[in-house]
């Protein structure tokens, strides 16, 4: 009983989930695990860059700012709006706080 939780429309049991996960994993492994693996050798780790020398490893790493570049580009209008909100000026922090308070006042007193 310790592992069930009931959500109102169903239940969730991590042990069952784990058990099925393990079974599926074994199943998958038994099917595909017998494939012939390539042998590891240091030469094969080296990338082949159409004849060019390998660049510095620091430059190979994809920078964190560039991950999800497409996503941010697609939503640039939204992010420009967010940037306008997050000015970093303390006065604006207080303005937001007070604005929410006033809006809540109006909403609640008229409600």
């Amino acid at each position: 009983m310790w592992t069930y939780i009931f959500t109102g429309s169903g239940f969730w049991n991590p042990i069952w989930w784990l058990a099925s996960f393990v079974i599926v994993a074994i199943f998958v492994y038994s099917f595909f695990g017998s494939e012939v693996k390539a042998k590891y050798s240091p030469d094969k780790v080296k990338p082949f860059l159409s004849g060019w020398d390998e660049v510095n490893k620091d430059a190979m790493q994809v920078k964190a700012s560039n991950i999800y570049w497409g996503f941010t580009k697609a939503m640039s209008g939204y992010y420009r709006f967010l940037d306008r909100c997050h000015t970093g000026i303390i006065n604006d922090y207080v303005v937001w706080f007070m604005a929410v308070m006033v809006i809540t006042f109006i909403a609640f007193i008229t409600a």
């Binding site: 940037d83 997050h86 000015t87 970093g88 000026i89 303390i90 006065n91």
Partner: peptide, 10 residues
Amino acid sequence: DTREIRRLRG
């Protein structure tokens, strides 16, 4: 000036 003390933003 608060307008210049804004290293943390975004």
